[in-house]
Amino acid sequence: MIDLCEVREALRQNVYDPEIGINVVDLGLIYDLQEPEEGTLYVKMTMTTPGCPAHDSIAEAVEWAAAQVFGVAEVKVDVVWDPPWSPERMSEEARQQLYG
């Protein structure tokens, strides 16, 4: 069984939006983590904008970081646009870092 908290922490520590410099978890880009079948991790996420130039590299980094967690045999990353991302999804830490 995959420890989804461990996956979230791996993403927090290893995957950053290169333009903003804040991790994808605190930015609020990770919408959902599930283990639909043993060893398979499903990640539902978004980007800050549909035209994000780092779209592919961020999604690939999420897949890589999640695959490092014990019990993860396969990672499926689904980038969605609904609901759209907004700054309200950010953690308080991310807001402080971005807005001071």
Rank of each mutant, 00 (worst) to 15 (best):
C52E: 01
V43S: 09
V75F: 08
C5K: 15
D78W: 02
L27D: 06
Y99H: 10
W85V: 02
G71W: 11
D78N: 14
V15T: 08
G21R: 05
G21Q: 04
A73E: 15
W64A: 13
D82W: 12
R95P: 09
K44S: 00
V69C: 02
E63P: 07
F70T: 14
I30S: 06
Q13V: 05
E88A: 06
V62R: 08
C52V: 02
G100W: 08
L11M: 04
V72H: 11
R12H: 06
T46F: 02
L33M: 04
D32Q: 14
R8A: 15
Y99S: 01
V62G: 12
E60F: 02
N23T: 13
A10R: 00
G51K: 00
T48I: 02
V75T: 13
Y31F: 11
P53T: 05
V79L: 11
V75W: 09
P87H: 10
Q68M: 14
V24I: 11
F70D: 15
R95H: 10
I2E: 12
D3R: 08
D78Q: 12
E88V: 00
M47T: 13
T40W: 14
E9N: 12
I30V: 13
Y31Q: 09
V80G: 04
E74M: 09
A65Q: 05
R89C: 05
G100V: 07
D3C: 07
E6W: 04
V7K: 08
A54L: 11
V43H: 13
G71M: 12
V69F: 04
T46E: 09
D17T: 09
R8D: 13
S57H: 03
C5W: 00
L98G: 12
P36Q: 06
V62I: 14
E92C: 00
K76Y: 09
M1W: 01
L27S: 05
V62T: 09
L29I: 06
Q97V: 07
W81V: 11
Q13W: 00
A73V: 12
A59Q: 06
L41K: 08
G39S: 09
P87L: 04
E60Y: 13
G21P: 11
E37M: 14
L29W: 03
W81S: 12
E63I: 03
L41E: 13
R8G: 15
G21N: 10
S86N: 04
I2A: 12
G39K: 11
I22R: 04
A10D: 05
L33W: 00
V79Y: 11
Y16K: 08
E38Y: 08
I30H: 04
T48R: 01
M90S: 10
S91T: 14
L4W: 02
Q13G: 04
G51M: 07
I30C: 06
T46I: 03
P18M: 05
N23V: 08
R12V: 07
V25K: 01
A67N: 14
L27F: 11
S86A: 10
M45F: 03
C52M: 06
F70P: 15
G28V: 04
G71Q: 12
